[in-house]
Write a protein that binds this DNA or RNA. Structure first.
Lengths: 217, 217
DNA sequence: TAGATTGTTAATCGATTAACAATC
DNA sequence: TAGATTGTTAATCGATTAACAATC
């Protein structure tokens, strides 16, 4: 994915939120500057990697001084688009959807909850985190009037492709997919990120099994 | 992480759940065999990578035939430890914790929900997915008697380190951490996997921003 | 047997680490 | 100025892809 003409490897982008988190902590502690060396010790990565990573986006350090934390924090936030106020909707107001609607970290990171949708009469009309759950039949109307940027998908896996198609047709810019199925699309203007919760549990399970085996044998 | 003496790269392990998912789909469609080439087209990876990946765990294909899906599915499940019946507890019965307690995919993958814990009087005693929420003061007792393998952490970030320390002290084997902070430990016998939901939203946000910029300029 | 497809070695590509000159 | 630390190039390491002999 490009930034200022340079191609930034995906691995680097995936590390940015973690930098952002650590820098936020330092900022809270009123620390003003930090060297790549000191940050590397805190984060358990190499100082070299930190400097390489930051340099994809243009050097924001200063020789002999290090990095200004406030500036670096703001810059990474900008790079990640946290100051765009992206409007987000949640499609699927089941247990997970409702939990994400109440997830305060999303709002703290600049994302604006703009709508919640479901098919079930049981949840339509309920108010979650200040937003009234709308019926799925209202989706196209809402998108036309309210032009959300991001949709968080927490629908059953058999429904996810059809819902994604409607969202893409309506001009959504990004999909955060929690459903246990993958989304197919030819559309190259929509970004898709998958979060498969059971995948994480399975890799954890693998690690546990290997550790037990090692301990035994 | 080792398997039969061979060191398997983490990237390979992280791909296993995705293979498992696709193979499960094929199985449901009563397909018996598949070649690495055919699977590669479905999954959008190279056939070469598939063959390399599977070979870390010993060749389970057959020249001229391909892979038997049933066998491959079972084997990957075994490798991932899905047949161990790992006993899992959820610590933190807030919105996210309750949603995960009701997450049926976990049970489908062989994980057994063994307990739910919280500090709040409001949720203690409530029954979630058949399990009564216990007070945190009961944690040590419960661990002694019930020896859970995995703890899913959905507690506020200021609490996560202390809770993790208690779990590790009590002999937990793996932690799936949803809290927005990282866990420090010297203990090399406990596996830790982090799921930072807002990280995914942020990388999605990055991708959207880059795509918009490209479209403009 | 002939054709298909694996398992595996070799070649390529990309990401990480090391090193150090530039410079604050 | 001297010391510290970046930005960046070069060296290393690891992962992916290509190629093909082995074999079902």
């Amino acid at each position: 994915m490009n930034y200022n003409g340079k191609t930034v490897p995906t691995v680097v982008i995936k590390r940015l939120p973690r930098y952002y988190r650590y820098l936020g902590e330092l900022l809270k502690q009123d620390i003003v500057r930090i060297s790549s060396e000191a940050l590397s010790r805190k984060m358990n990565v190499t100082a070299s990697q930190i400097r390489q990573d930051f340099n994809y986006f243009g050097g924001f350090g200063q020789q002999g001084y290090g990095y200004n934390i406030e500036h670096l924090y703001q810059t990474i936030g900008d790079i990640l688009g946290l100051n765009e106020g992206y409007r987000t909707i949640i499609v699927g107001a089941g247990n997970l959807g409702r939990a994400l609607a109440n997830h305060t970290t999303f709002a703290k990171r600049g994302f604006v909850l703009a709508g919640i949708f479901d098919t079930s009469e049981e949840v339509i009309g309920r108010v979650i985190n200040g937003i009234t759950v709308m019926p799925m039949t209202e989706l196209e109307n809402f998108m036309r009037e309210s032009t959300p940027d991001i949709a968080i998908l927490t629908v059953p896996k058999h429904a996810v492709q059809a819902v994604a198609d409607r969202l893409i047709e309506g001009g959504i810019k990004g999909l955060l997919n929690f459903s246990y199925a993958e989304i197919d699309t030819e559309d190259k203007t929509v970004a898709i990120e998958n979060v498969h919760l059971s995948d994480s549990l399975m890799t954890l399970s693998y690690d546990i099994k290997r550790m037990s085996e090692e301990a035994e044998g």
